[in-house]
């Protein structure tokens, strides 16, 4: 069964969605969309560096994304620029550097677009192992820091007042994100990883009653979207990453339309109820 490239892509995609959903919820709650984007943009630099020293691309991606996270927190401590400006600098510096490096490494023929947008044809058995090991590690890590990360998201002072420094938890979260980005590269691509983190979480928001509920729903929806997107990609002969993102966007639009309609219906009910009373 694993001999079929499409089956491998499906299994890998499901694994990625399961890890990306819950982590993506925190990205949304903590308003870190641009942070995730920056890490993802730096992924290509990781690939280029890994190829340069003949290491596994996923390892390079993880290392560079982690380095970006550390660099950001150091730059933030210096405090000369706001976080979004710093992220803008880092994101595009990393992407520019990567493209220049790839151009200079003329002895290697790298299909840049495969890394930027994902290519299901390239998913091997080793990648499957990587996705499930990396994804399971990311989820286990998230479970471990869940309470503190949630408290830090609500108000870091509540933690500090109890003698807990939030910084290690934040760093751990950044590393978990780096891991998910590293293992999703082949399926969704560097430019679109953030979409898989954010869109499922954003789509289920209005149906969620609690943080855990939202995380589970985001993971579940992510799985559905990856499967639909991959089948779409197969039939339309389109790149896998963008097709998954289009499927996710359609789901997001439907969910938004539903919540707008539901809100209007509630309001009308209230008005009518008021008249009767």
């Amino acid at each position: 069964m694993l001999d079929d490239f499409f089956t491998r892509a499906l299994i890998a995609g499901i694994g990625i969605a399961l890890a990306a959903g819950p982590l993506g919820c925190f990205v949304v709650w903590r308003r870190m969309a641009y942070f995730g984007d920056t890490m993802a943009h730096s992924a290509l630099l990781g690939v280029a560096l890994a190829l340069l020293i003949d290491a596994a691309p996923a390892l390079g991606v993880f290392a560079v994304a982690a380095a970006i996270a550390v660099a950001l927190s150091a730059l933030q401590r210096i405090g000369l620029l706001a976080a979004d400006a710093l992220l803008g600098v880092l994101a595009h510096a990393a992407l520019g550097l990567a493209l220049v490096m790839v151009a200079l490494m003329s002895w290697l023929r790298i299909d840049v677009s495969a890394y930027l947008f994902g290519d299901i044809l390239t998913v091997g058995r080793l990648d499957l192992l990587l996705v499930y090991l990396g994804g399971a590690a990311a989820l286990a890590g998230l479970l471990k820091i869940w309470r503190r990360l949630l408290a830090d998201t609500v108000d870091p002072d509540l933690l500090r007042a109890e003698g807990v420094r939030p910084e290690p938890t934040r760093l751990a979260f950044a590393l978990l994100l780096a891991a998910v980005i590293a293992v999703s590269l082949k399926i969704v691509g560097a430019l679109l990883v953030t979409a898989l983190l954010i869109i499922p979480a954003a789509t289920v928001r209005s149906f969620a009653r609690g943080p855990v509920h939202m995380a589970v729903m985001a993971a579940g929806l992510g799985v559905v979207l990856v499967v639909v997107g991959l089948f779409g990609s197969l039939h339309l002969d389109t790149p896998s990453g963008p097709t998954i993102v289009v499927a996710a966007f359609i789901a997001f639009l439907l969910a938004t339309a539903w919540s707008v309609w539901a809100r209007r219906r509630d309001r009308n009910d209230r008005v009518r109820g008021g008249r009767h009373a």
């Binding site: 709650w29 998201t153 609500v154 954003a202 928001r205 969620a208 609690g210 943080p211 939202m214």
Partner: peptide, 9 residues
């Protein structure tokens, strides 16, 4: 204490 609307809590 301001809890972001995106966080169902």
């Amino acid at each position: 204490l301001s809890v972001d609307r995106t966080l169902p809590l």
